[in-house]
Design a binder for these strands. Structure first.
Length: 305
DNA sequence: CCCCAGGGGTACC
DNA sequence: GGTACCCATGGG
């Protein structure tokens, strides 16, 4: 029997399909099926005020007890924060932003598992979302622990660290294979302070965690992790709501909305994003990102005249 | 600023 | 059924 969760200001489909997570599949009957930790989750939203969650506990082996949950639907889906408080912190006079918020009302930034998030976004470099999903699926199938019914947990950092370059290459990572391998080895060997970065992976953030700039700088020591990917990891899995990843889609949106027909450097764009959107800039980014992709997909128009 | 590093989905024809 | 283009980029 699925667990019934009362929700408000929440939209499951937008949240799972806005490009922040890569393991969710929408089935014909309206259920979303995905793997979270060592569990297979089935989620659906039969009405605006209700989310149903059926969590099938993954077993590590036939004689072992069910694996303990590392998170809950309420926490993973960020149902434990007030969306109204967050959007109220956006600049009040930014009409294009608030239009995007209305368009996708209920979209929330997930609280994902940091290592899976990092590995997924290392794989994302200059890849389209459908291909990222395929890579993540191949990694899970080849290296992840079976958790029943053909599902696999995402492989641990240690398993990837001990994989061969060829095995990773075979998962269609291309030139990203060596980056993922080297990053996994650095974390596994303690070459960067991964615990410090991920300590804040709860919402609301724990007091005493390291600050955003420190975490960003530490993450960028990893090969294949620049500012964009580091910000994705900090936003989607480490509870840093101000992290503002800038990819080609969000860059297009920012240029069109805030700097029409003006030449702006990448640095200037970053400074604008940091100063304009406030302490929940990352959430604003996700609304603008999803809005840009939803409206522009299929159109080849070069929108700059 | 330039360039390069897989490869496959997708919009066109 | 061909094909050019583009992709949640980083590094040299």
């Amino acid at each position: 029997m699925p667990n019934r969760i009362n929700v408000s200001d929440f939209d499951l489909a937008s949240t799972l399909e806005c490009g922040q997570a890569f393991r969710w599949k929408r089935e014909a009957d309206g259920w979303f099926v995905g793997v979270v930790g060592r569990e297979v989750w089935r989620l659906r939203q039969p009405s605006p005020a209700v989310v149903e969650a059926a969590v099938a506990g993954g077993r590590t082996g036939s004689r072992e007890p069910p694996a303990t949950a590392v998170t809950t639907p309420e926490h993973y889906l960020a149902l434990d924060v007030s969306l109204r408080d967050i959007t109220s912190a956006f600049p009040a006079d930014d009409e294009p932003l608030h239009a995007a918020v209305r368009q996708h009302w209920g979209l929330r930034v997930l609280c994902q598992e940091p290592w899976e998030c990092l590995a997924s976004f290392i794989a994302s470099s200059s890849k389209q979302i459908v291909q990222i999903r395929q890579i993540v699926d191949l990694l899970a199938r080849r290296f992840g622990e079976p958790i029943g019914n053909g599902f696999h947990a995402f492989p641990t950092v240690g398993v990837i660290a001990r994989a061969s370059h060829q095995e990773l290459w075979d998962c269609k990572l291309g030139f990203r294979a060596k980056n993922l391998l080297a990053a996994a080895r650095m974390i596994d060997d303690g070459k960067i302070d991964w615990p410090m970065i991920t300590r804040g992976a709860v919402s609301p953030p724990r007091p005493g965690r390291c600050d955003y700039e420190t975490a960003l700088e530490e993450l960028m020591k990893l090969p294949g992790v620049g500012e964009k990917i580091a910000n994705c990891v900090l936003l989607f899995s480490c509870g840093f709501d101000q992290a503002f990843p800038i990819d080609v889609w969000i860059e297009r949106a920012l240029l069109r909305i805030y700097f029409p027909r003006r030449k702006v450097t990448a640095k200037r764009l970053r400074e604008f994003a940091r100063s304009h959107f406030g302490s929940y800039a990352g959430w604003a980014q996700q609304y603008l990102f999803f809005n840009e992709r939803s409206s522009k997909r299929g159109k080849r128009s070069s929108n700059r005249e």
